[in-house]
Design a protein around this nucleic acid. Structure first.
Length: 554
RNA sequence: AGACCCAUGGUGUAAUUGGCAACACAACAGAUUUUGGUUCUGUCGUUCAAGGUUCGAGUCCUUGUGGGUCUACCA
C-alpha cells in the first residue's frame, strides 16, 4: 500500500508530496478526469486517465469522472456510455457516481450572479465580431467594450433576463471584467456565458444560457473540491483565469497543473481528423483497429495492461514528446508473450508432401500451448502426409549458411513433429511453387528424437486435410509517415497507407475454428492475433495485433 | 510583435536537488532456444550555444539560439 511518503516520480508528484508535507487540504488528494462527451477516447486520453488515476492511487487519493458537458450543441448521451466503458476497460473505477458539469448549472448560475454583484462581470451587447475586435492582438492592447461600465444592478437584471429567454442567441453575453490590455489574451474580459436556445442532453429545455469552459471547468473542480486539477499544456493560459475566478468567487482553491500531451508515432488524436477518417471511409468506424481510439486499439488486441504500462513508463513532463510505436508494441508483446496461447496458422500456404509418410495414415502430436507458462497445458495436433507450410519458408535455391529454412537438400524441424529433408519442388508455368516434396526421419519425433539429425530451423505447419480456413486481417500503421500532421505543405490525408489493411485467407489448425471473439493467440513465428467481432459461429476473423520481433534479415 | 512554457544518446525518461550522466525502447554483436519469438550477455551513443558563479554545473545566473502555446459566444 502506498503512503504519503511515496517517492515522487515526476514534477506533479513532487508538488503533491510537498502539499502532503505541508498538510494542505488535510492531506487529501483528489483528481478528476473531465472528458467532453462528444467523441471517442483515444490513446492521448489514456495518458490523461492513467496520470489522474495512478497519481491519486499512489497517494491514497480519489479520482472523479466528470463529463464536461456545457455545450448543448455537441454533446450526446451515447458518448457517455462509451467513455465509461473505455475507462473501465483500461482498469479504472472512479469515485462515486459519474459527475456532470451540467449538474452544476444552478450553482454556476448563482456564481455568475455573485460575480456580477461584486462588479466583476458585465452583460455585453457587442456582436461576436465586435468582441473579437475589442480583444486587440498579440502584443497589441485591446479596447473596452462600450457596455463595460454598467452598474451591477443593471447587469444582474440583464443577466436574469438572458436566463429568462428574453433575448435571442448571440445578442448578449456575460463577460468577466478584468483587463483589456492584459498580455494574456484570455484575461481580456473573457466571455463566461452565452445564449443558446437549445435543449441539453441532460437538462433538456431548462436552460437557454450556458457557461463556457472557463466558467464551468474550474468551478466544477471547486464544487467537487478537487485538490489537483491535472490537464494538458495547452491550458496553461487558462490557469490565470482559473485562479482569478477562484479569488473573485472565493471558492475552493483547486490547483491546476499542466503536463505535456503524449504523441505517438503513426497515430493522430485530433477529434476532427479522426472523424474525417471515418466519414471518408478510410476506416470502417471509430473502432477500426487502425484507429488511435481505445475502442480501436482494444479491437486490434492491445491489452489494457500494455496501454497502462506504456502510459506510465513514458513519464510525465512539460516538454513536447513524440513516443515511438516501437515502445508501445514492445509493451503489447510483453503482455501477450506472457498470456497468449501459441497456435499454428499458415498465412500464405503452399502444400508440402512427405513422400515417405504412408498415404491414409495420420497421428496426433502433442504441443505446448505456452512455453512461458506451464499451466497453459498442451494440445493435440493432427499430422499426416500432406501439410501446408509458409510459402516464404521455402527457397528454390539455398541462400547462404545463415538460411535455416526449407530449400533443396536442407533439413528442418516441423514444430512439435518431425525433422524433414527437402527433396525438391514442383512449379507451374510461371515458376510459382505449387508443391514441396520432402521425406521425414521417422525417429525424429518431437520429444523422442533419436535420429541425431541437427537442424537450425523450426517451421510452423498445419495438416492439410484437417486445416480450417481463417480470415485474417493484416494491419500496418494507418499512415506512411510517423507524424502526418507535421507537414505545413501537405495534408495528412496524403499519408494514408494504402496497405494499412490487407485481408487474407489463411490455413489454421482445427481448434482455431472454435476461437471466441476477443480471444488472443500467438500464431507461431508470425505474431499475435485477436478474434474480431465480425466473426461468426465457426468462422473466426483474426486481427493482427502486432507481429513478432524478428532478428532475421532474409 | 507581447506573454508564457520547454531544451539530456535515434526516441522517451532519470540523475540522492551543486558531487563519477543512468534506465527503457531502438540499433548492432554474441550465447541459449523444437518460435530467426522469449531469456541472457555485451557494444553503440547524450547534457542547444556562449559567457558567468563555484574546488566542482545537466542542475544556479546572464545573454543568445531553437521548438511549442495563446487573439472560438469549442473544450
Amino acid at each position: 500500500m502506498s503512503t504519503a511518503t511515496s517517492k515522487a516520480d515526476n514534477f506533479i508528484e513532487e508538488i503533491i508530496v510537498e502539499d502532503l508535507e505541508n498538510g494542505k487540504h488535510d492531506g487529501r488528494i483528489h483528481t478528476r478526469f473531465p472528458p467532453e462527451p462528444n467523441g471517442y477516447l483515444h490513446i492521448g486520453h489514456a495518458k490523461a486517465i492513467v496520470i489522474n488515476f495512478e497519481t491519486a492511487k499512489k497517494y491514497g487519493g480519489k479520482t472523479n469522472l466528470r463529463m464536461d458537458d456545457t455545450n448543448p450543441s455537441t454533446e450526446e448521451t451515447l458518448f457517455v456510455d462509451n467513455i465509461q466503458n473505455d475507462i473501465r476497460w483500461l482498469g479504472y473505477e472512479w469515485e462515486g457516481e459519474t459527475r456532470y458539469a451540467s449538474d452544476y448549472f444552478d450553482e454556476l448560475y448563482a456564481l455568475a450572479l455573485k460575480l456580477i454583484d461584486k462588479g466583476y462581470a458585465y452583460v455585453d451587447e457587442s456582436s461576436a465580431a465586435d468582441i473579437e475586435k475589442q480583444k486587440g492582438d498579440i502584443g497589441v492592447p485591446g479596447t473596452n467594450s462600450p457596455f463595460r461600465d454598467r452598474s451591477p444592478e443593471e447587469n444582474r437584471d440583464l443577466f436574469e433576463r438572458m436566463r429568462a429567454g428574453e433575448f435571442p442567441d448571440g445578442s448578449r453575453v456575460l463577460r468577466a471584467k478584468i483587463d483589456m490590455a492584459h498580455p494574456n489574451l484570455l484575461l481580456r474580459d473573457p466571455v463566461l456565458y452565452r445564449i443558446k436556445h437549445e435543449a441539453h442532453h441532460r437538462t433538456g429545455g431548462k436552460w437557454c444560457i450556458y457557461p463556457l469552459y472557463d466558467f464551468a471547468h474550474g468551478q466544477s473542480d471547486s464544487i467537487e473540491e478537487i485538490t489537483h486539477s491535472l490537464c494538458s499544456l495547452e491550458f496553461r493560459h487558462h490557469r490565470d483565469l482559473y485562479n482569478w475566478l477562484i479569488e473573485a468567487l472565493e471558492i475552493f482553491p483547486s490547483r491546476q497543473i499542466e503536463f505535456a500531451r503524449m504523441n505517438v508515432d503513426y497515430f493522430i488524436t485530433s477529434k476532427r481528423k479522426l472523424k474525417l477518417l471515418v466519414d471518408e471511409g478510410i476506416v470502417t468506424g471509430w473502432d477500426d483497429p487502425r484507429m488511435s481510439t481505445l475502442a480501436g486499439l482494444r479491437r486490434k488486441g492491445y491489452p489494457a495492461e500494455a496501454i497502462r504500462n506504456f502510459c506510465m513508463d513514458t513519464g510525465v513532463t512539460r516538454r513536447d514528446n513524440q513516443q515511438s510505436l516501437d515502445l508501445l508494441e514492445f509493451k503489447v508483446r510483453e503482455v501477450l508473450n506472457r498470456d497468449a496461447h501459441r497456435y499454428m496458422a499458415v498465412l500464405d500456404p503452399v502444400k508440402l508432401v512427405i513422400t515417405n509418410y504412408p498415404e491414409g495414415q495420420s497421428e496426433m502430436l502433442e504441443s505446448e500451448n505456452n512455453p512461458e507458462d506451464e499451466r497453459a497445458g498442451t494440445r493435440q495436433l493432427p499430422f499426416s502426409r500432406e501439410l501446408y507450410v509458409e510459402r516464404s519458408d521455402f527457397r528454390k535455391e539455398p541462400q547462404n549458411r545463415k538460411y535455416y529454412r526449407l530449400a533443396p537438400d536442407k533439413d528442418v524441424r516441423l514444430k512439435s513433429a518431425y525433422v524433414i529433408h527437402c527433396d525438391g519442388h514442383e512449379e507451374d508455368a510461371d515458376g510459382n511453387v505449387t508443391q514441396i516434396n520432402c521425406t521425414y526421419y521417422p525417429d525424429s519425433k518431437s520429444g523422442d528424437d533419436t535420429s541425431g539429425v541437427k537442424v537450425k530451423g523450426t517451421l510452423h505447419w498445419v495438416n492439410a486435410e484437417t486445416a480450417v480456413d481463417l480470415d485474417v486481417r493484416m494491419y500496418e500503421p494507418l499512415f506512411t509517415d510517423p507524424t502526418p500532421m507535421d507537414h505545413e505543405d501537405r495534408d495528412f490525408m496524403e499519408f494514408v497507407n494504402p496497405n494499412s489493411l490487407v485481408s487474407i485467407r489463411a490455413k489454421g489448425e482445427p481448434a482455431l475454428a472454435e476461437a471466441q471473439v476477443g480471444q488472443q493467440f500467438q500464431f507461431l513465428r508470425q505474431g499475435y492475433f485477436t478474434v474480431d467481432p465480425d466473426s461468426t459461429e465457426g468462422h473466426p476473423v483474426f486481427n493482427l495485433t502486432v507481429g513478432l520481433k524478428s532478428s532475421w534479415k532474409g
